[in-house]
């Protein structure tokens, strides 16, 4: 009986993945609501659970593909693989419009570029000081310091190892969670109480879930201003990091 069920999961691996991820998401949003009153966004908890599953998979099989190394969960590999991941990321651009970019104005665009450059450079410096010296790993971790999605996209594009990609996701996740939780506490010190600073803040932080969560906890009226710039951050990061920033890293370390 048990074998038949496992075989059924294996035969329908991608569908199984949809079910597993859906249940994980439901559980995460439930935890977010009940334990943190929505302060820690459900998506962040879901990604943490994803990394925990990957750890369990890695320890139990000794493989390198996390939970996807377990036969019955192999569909996770397809669902979260580069192909569908890139498709979904490109699709997020659907929500953005040229009008919004124009509204953000010069300050908004400047904050976007500054946000990506600063986070990227810090990520690269930290990675370097921890002993990473190849351009692919440095750029991937730099991308992860921007957001947890820029890291893997860069890692895939420049051919970084799975460990480095996992670290880049973790770095982005730490950033996202800190922004979500820390914003209300630092808001008054950084003058985050008007639409202009919210716009700048969105562009500098860039993590959409973090920005939305952080601003909602600070002053819900500011959320749309932060979201206006943050929406473009990941896209711009996916454009800049595996191109000019990667070249810059290569040029510097040789």
């Amino acid at each position: 009986m048990q074998d038949t069920i496992f075989a059924m999961f294996e035969d329908n691996s991608l569908v199984t993945a949809f079910a597993v991820v859906g249940i994980t998401m439901y559980f995460s949003y439930f935890l977010s609501d009940k334990l943190t009153k929505g302060r820690l966004h459900g998506s962040a908890i879901a990604i943490i659970l994803g990394l925990v599953l990957a750890y369990i998979g890695g320890v139990s099989t000794g493989g390198e593909n996390g939970i996807a190394d377990l036969q019955m969960f192999s569909g996770i590999g397809l669902m979260g693989g580069a192909m569908l991941r890139d498709l979904a990321i490109v699709a997020t651009a659907f929500g953005a419009s040229i009008e919004e970019i124009k509204k953000a104005g010069f300050t908004g665009i400047l904050s976007l570029f500054m946000g990506i450059f600063v986070s990227f450079i810090i990520g690269v410096i930290v990675a370097f000081s921890f002993g990473y010296t190849d351009a692919a790993s440095l750029t991937t971790i730099g991308g992860g310091a921007a957001t947890y999605i820029v890291g893997p996209v860069v890692g895939g594009a420049v051919g970084a190892s799975s460990e480095v990609i996992a670290l880049s996701i973790a770095a982005g996740l730490v950033k996202s969670i800190l922004v979500m939780i820390g914003t209300p506490f630092v808001a008054k010190y950084i003058g985050l109480d008007n639409p202009r600073s919210a716009l700048v803040y969105g562009g500098l932080m860039g993590t959409t879930s973090g920005v939305a969560g952080g601003l909602a906890a600070t002053d819900p009226k500011l959320v749309p201003y932060g979201a206006m710039t943050a929406t473009f951050y990941t896209g711009l990061g996916c454009l800049l990091c595996p191109s000019i920033l990667y070249f810059a890293v290569r040029a510097i370390i040789g």
Binding site: V21, M25, L51, A54, A68, A88, G95, Y148
Partner: peptide
């Protein structure tokens, strides 16, 4: 639809990384 599948796909992506090694 695909835009809304972004976070679930990111969760699936996280679940297949070499976390034990990292």
């Amino acid at each position: 639809f695909w835009s809304a599948m972004y976070i679930p796909i990111v969760v699936a992506m996280s679940a297949q990384q070499n976390v034990a090694g990292a």
